[in-house]
Design a protein around this nucleic acid. Structure first.
Lengths: 322, 322
DNA sequence: TTGAAAGCGCTAACAT
DNA sequence: ATGTTAGCGCTTTCAA
C-alpha cells in the first residue's frame, strides 16, 4: 500500500480534508498502481446517501420522455451522479413501487415526470428526506420543487399561427381534463380562440394517446367542418393525422394539424404537422438542477420553475381551404 | 418490530431459507406497516455484489432503444434487479466512461446495445468478472454472450413482400457496411433479390439516421426509377419517406417503402410504411436472461441467442405502378 | 496532518 | 426454524 491509513485514502479520494501534497501523491499513485476503484456500495452505506438519483417516467417508449431523460442524465453526470430510470406504465401502483426502490437505493432525490402518483407517495418522499421535483404537480415545499410549462403561451402561439393562415373553424383535442396540464391547455385554447374571434370552435377531450387522438378527431370532424385542428399533445396529433387520412382528407390541403408539445415527433410526422415545442431536454436539465440545488443545500426550500414553449413552424401548415 | 431477529427478516426478504409461514407473515406485515425498504447499499456491501445491471445504449432518443430498455427492465425487476441506462451517443469514448461507471457500481453484468465500443473495453469487462451481453458483436466466451438477429430472414420477407406486389425495380438503403449487422442485411438483400430474379436493383449505403435515409433515397431515386425501397432500418425508412414526399412521390401509389426492423414507428409512420419487425422488447428480455444466466451460474460460459424477425404487413404497400 | 476505531444496514456462517 | 454475530469497505468523529 501507500503506507497510510484507510482514512487518509478516503480524505484524498473525496478531498475532504487538508492532506500534505506528498502524502496525497503517494496515495494517488498507489491508487493508480492497484487500479483501485472505490466501492460505491460501501461509500453509500457509510455516507448514508447514494449517488444515484431516481427518474420516474410514465413510459420510456413515449417519445416525450427520452428527451427529458437525456437532459437529466447529462446534467447528472456532470455532477458525478447516476440516474436510474423507472417506468410506471401510467400506473400509480407502479409509481409507488418505483418510489420504494428509490428509497431502497438511498437516492437523495427523485424526479417524478408522471402524473400517476398518489398523494400518500408524494408526502412519503419528504418524510424520508428525499428531494423531489415534479412536472406540473403544482406544489412547492421543503424538499419539493415543481416544474411547470407555459402552456398558455404555447396555445396562444398555436392559435395565432392558424389564425394567420386564415383558419376560422378550429378544433381542439384535449387530454384528460382532470390533469392540471390538460385543463390549462384546454382553457387556454378557449380563451385564445375567443380573443382571436374565431368563427367556430369545438373542443373534444381525450386521453393523450394516439388512439385517443384518432377517436377525438373522428368525433370532431363529424358534423364540424374544421379546417385546422390543434391537438394538446403530439401523440394525439398523430392519431388525428391518421383519422384525417382515413377520411381521405389531405394534410394540409384540407386540414391543418398543429400538435402541441413535442419536438421529437417533428422529424417523424413531418411533413404533416406543425408543432408547438416544449424544450424537453431542458426539462430534464432543469429537473436535475432543482434536485441538485435542494440536495446540496438542505436549507433550500424547493422552487418553482417555468418552461417556455416554442412554436416550430413548418411549411406544411396550409391556408384555410375555400 | 415483529419480534424477530434481523437475520430472519433477511431470510424472509430474500426467501433464502425455510421460514415458518406464521413468522414470515409477521415479518411481512411489519414491513408493510413500517414502510420498510431494504437498504440496497448495505445489501450490496454484505453480499459482495450489487443488484444493478448496466444497460448501455447508443441513444435513448432513437426509438430502437426504449423498447429494448423496457423489456430489459421488466425482466430485471422480476428478479429484483435494477437497470441503469447509459447513453453513449454513438461515441466509443463515452462507452468507455459508461463501462467505468458500471465497474464502480459493482454491477454484476452489463448489456451493451451499441456497436461503438473498443476491443480494449470489451476485454476489460470479463477481466473484472463482469458479465456482458452484446448485440451483434459476434463473440461468445466466458462471461460474454451475444444476441444476433435473423436479418437474413427479415430481408427475405421484405423482398418476398415487394415481389408479391409485382415490384421489379427495388432499391435498398443500407447502413454503414463496416457494421456486421448492416453488412449482413445488405448481403441478404443482394442474395434475395437475385434469387427472386428482380429486374433491377440498386443498393446505397448510408448511416442509419433519418438524414441518412433522406440522402440515400434521394441518391437512389436520381436516375433509378425504383417502385419500392427497402430501408435497412426504420429511421432511414422515415428519411426515405420524407425524400419521397419532397419529390412529390405519393406513397404507396408511386413508391412503396418497407422499413426494416422497427415496430415502434409503425404507429407513427403509418400509413406510409410496411415494416419488418425485430421484437425489440424481446431483445431486452433476452439480454437480461443472458446476463442472469451467467451471473447466477458462474460456470456458465456465455451463449449465443438469435432473434427472429417478423414482417408487419400494412395495407399501404402498393402494387408496382404501370 | 494523520491514525484509530466506531459504525452504516445488511448477509451468511454458525449456534441454538 | 430462528437467533447471534462477524464482517463487507467505506466515512467520519475523536484523539494523537
Amino acid at each position: 500500500m501507500a503506507g497510510v491509513s484507510v482514512a487518509t485514502v478516503s480524505y484524498v479520494v473525496n478531498d475532504a480534508r487538508n492532506v500534505r501534497p506528498e502524502t496525497r501523491h503517494r496515495v494517488l499513485t498507489a491508487i493508480q498502481r492497484l487500479g483501485y476503484a472505490p466501492n460505491a456500495a460501501a461509500r453509500n452505506l457509510a455516507a448514508g446517501r447514494s449517488f444515484i438519483l431516481g427518474l420516474i417516467v410514465s413510459d420510456i417508449r413515449n417519445p416525450f420522455f427520452p428527451e427529458i431523460i437525456t437532459g437529466f442524465q447529462e446534467a447528472a453526470n456532470v455532477c458525478s451522479m447516476e440516474a436510474i430510470i423507472l417506468n410506471t406504465n401510467y400506473d400509480a401502483a407502479r409509481t409507488r413501487e418505483a418510489v420504494n426502490r428509490i428509497l431502497g437505493l438511498q437516492a437523495p432525490g427523485v424526479a417524478v415526470m408522471t402524473s400517476q402518483i398518489d398523494a400518500s407517495v408524494i408526502s412519503l418522499l419528504p418524510r424520508k428526506r428525499v428531494c423531489a421535483v415534479y412536472l406540473d404537480l403544482g406544489r412547492v415545499d421543503k424538499y419539493i420543487s415543481n416544474i411547470t410549462a407555459d402552456y398558455e403561451g404555447g396555445i396562444q402561439a398555436a392559435v395565432d399561427h392558424v389564425t394567420q393562415f386564415g383558419h376560422q373553424r378550429v378544433g381542439f383535442i384535449g387530454g384528460n381534463p382532470a390533469l392540471t396540464s390538460a385543463w390549462r391547455r384546454r382553457q387556454a385554447f378557449l380563451t385564445c380562440a375567443e380573443k382571436a374571434g374565431l368563427k367556430e370552435i369545438r373542443a373534444v377531450d381525450s386521453n393523450f394517446t394516439v388512439e385517443g387522438g384518432y377517436y377525438a378527431c373522428s368525433k370532431l370532424l363529424s358534423g364540424f367542418d374544421a379546417t385546422a385542428i390543434i391537438a394538446a399533445n403530439d401523440l394525439m396529433a398523430i392519431g388525428a393525422m391518421h383519422a384525417a387520412y382515413d377520411r381521405n382528407l389531405r394534410i394540409p390541403a384540407d386540414l391543418s394539424i398543429v400538435g402541441f408539445d413535442d419536438i421529437t415527433f417533428a422529424q417523424f410526422a413531418q411533413p404533416a404537422l406543425t408543432t408547438v415545442a416544449l424544450p424537453r431536454n431542458e426539462i430534464g436539465r432543469v429537473a436535475f438542477q432543482a434536485l441538485w440545488t435542494t440536495i446540496t443545500d438542505p436549507s433550500h426550500a424547493g422552487s418553482e420553475y417555468c418552461m417556455e414553449t416554442r412554436l416550430t413552424i413548418r411549411q406544411s401548415t396550409g391556408p384555410a381551404p375555400r
